[in-house]
C-alpha cells in the first residue's frame, strides 16, 4: 500500500546539505522523516513554511517534489530526487547513502 504526494526539500544555507521539511516543521537530512503532503492544500502549507525558512536564512532553494510513502518510508519518484536523497551513484562511499541518512529506500531503483 503506497500513498503518493509531495515533499518539500531545500539546501541548508550554511553548508549546502540536502534537507527535507518534517511534520514537526524542522529540517531533516533523512527523507524518511519528511512530511508527505497528499492534498494540494497541504503542499501549499509546506511551501509556505519553506518560504519562511528561506526568509530566516536557514535554507535556500526550497521546492516540492513528487514522492510516495510505503510501509512508513518515503521514496522520491524521479531519479534526480532519488540521487539527491542518496548521494552520487558512482561513489557509494559518499553522501547520505554512506552516512546512514538515506532512509529505508537506500537504492536507486
Amino acid at each position: 500500500m503506497s500513498e503518493k504526494g509531495q515533499v518539500l526539500t531545500a539546501n541548508r544555507l550554511r553548508d549546502g546539505e540536502v534537507v527535507f521539511l518534517t511534520r514537526a516543521g524542522t529540517w531533516s537530512e533523512n527523507i524518511d522523516e519528511a512530511a508527505l503532503a497528499i492534498e494540494k492544500e497541504a503542499a501549499a502549507g509546506l511551501e509556505a513554511q519553506g518560504a519562511k525558512a528561506v526568509a530566516a536564512t536557514l535554507v535556500t532553494g526550497a521546492y516540492l517534489f513528487d514522492a510516495e510513502r510505503k510501509d512508513g518510508h518515503v521514496r522520491a519518484l524521479h531519479i534526480r530526487e532519488r540521487i539527491r536523497t542518496l548521494g552520487p551513484t558512482v561513489r557509494m562511499d559518499l553522501g547520505k547513502q554512506a552516512e546512514g541518512t538515506a532512509g529505508a529506500f537506500a537504492a536507486l531503483d
Partner: peptide, 13 residues
C-alpha cells in the same frame, strides 16, 4: 557567489 566559482549543486555547494 557564482563570480567566485561557488555553485549550489545537487548534494552541496
Amino acid at each position: 557567489r557564482l563570480m567566485n566559482g561557488l555553485y549550489l549543486q545537487l548534494h552541496a555547494y
